[in-house]
Design a protein around this nucleic acid. Structure first.
Lengths: 148, 148
DNA sequence: TATTGTTATACTCTATAACTATA
DNA sequence: TATAGTTATAGAGTATAACAATA
């Protein structure tokens, strides 16, 4: 019977969520491979990026910005601090809070990080067929994930 | 300073992986909400779908088809069997293998399942701007996840 | 009283090695 | 020897409740 050679995935083949998951997995796996030399996970990359561009944001602000639960953010930030890439500094006006900053080492780290990122991203842009196609994809994805 | 009101996410805002993850999370969360009445997770939905369309496939074939490790597939299938939705049957020609089949109850279940799925999917298609936009999205996602 | 960071905890998903029974 | 299903286990990712310090 035909389906033994080519199983029928007709329902799944038009399922948006199914294809989103597969694409996300492919890109994240490539990300992990590309960033192996820096031993950086996607979430850590996004945190370092936010701190690099917005030094001094409160810990809770960075977590909320990236949709990370503040409870789960603690261990992530602990690791970045332990590795000497970023640090918490007491917030002057509110002693409950910490501002997040890159260390000097962390700043140097982000240079290499962004180089790796551009190479990683460029490969996927080419595979999509160019920056125009990438923009079309991001536009469609934003229609899905931006608040109703 | 401006970034305190609108933090700079410029690098992430063009990151394919970042947006894929956010979109996938949004769709999966909606999926979970829509399928709460059936208590079905995305992976279970995909397994029931494959079995419904391709009864008698070997357990390992279904797992491979969905990129699920065979070791992790066991508990998933156990749960479907315990709930009386699907069952393993000894393979006639190879006593190491099991063929996977829906039970009668499972077949009835899938009717409601596909109804819920169409409603869930239709909402996202509308949000994308129609079936044409959905197809464009799936085309782009396939360029990412289909084997090089 | 409310908020910030924290701890503890639990559940899901995923990945790997090793076992068993069959081939 | 190799393969199909299984078990055990470990690592991430994620979610919630509760606590201490501070507002």
């Amino acid at each position: 019977m035909a389906y033994e050679d080519h199983p029928d995935l007709s329902v799944l083949s038009s399922a948006i969520g199914y294809h989103l998951r597969r694409a996300q997995l492919a890109v994240f796996q490539d990300f992990t491979a590309c960033f192996a030399e820096l031993d950086l996970r996607p979430a850590e990359f996004s945190v370092l990026t936010v701190i690099a561009r917005n030094p001094g944001l409160k810990q809770g602000e960075v977590a909320a910005l990236l949709d990370i639960q503040r409870a789960n953010f603690v261990a992530l930030m602990d690791r970045l601090e332990r590795r000497g890439l970023a640090e918490r500094r007491r917030f002057p006006t509110d002693r409950r809070s910490y501002g997040l900053w890159l260390t000097r080492s962390g700043t140097e780290h982000t240079q290499r990080m962004f180089d790796l990122w551009h190479a990683h991203e460029e490969r996927w842009v080419e595979r999509l067929g160019g920056a125009g196609e990438r923009d079309r994809l991001l536009d469609l994805l934003n229609r899905i994930s931006s608040p109703a």
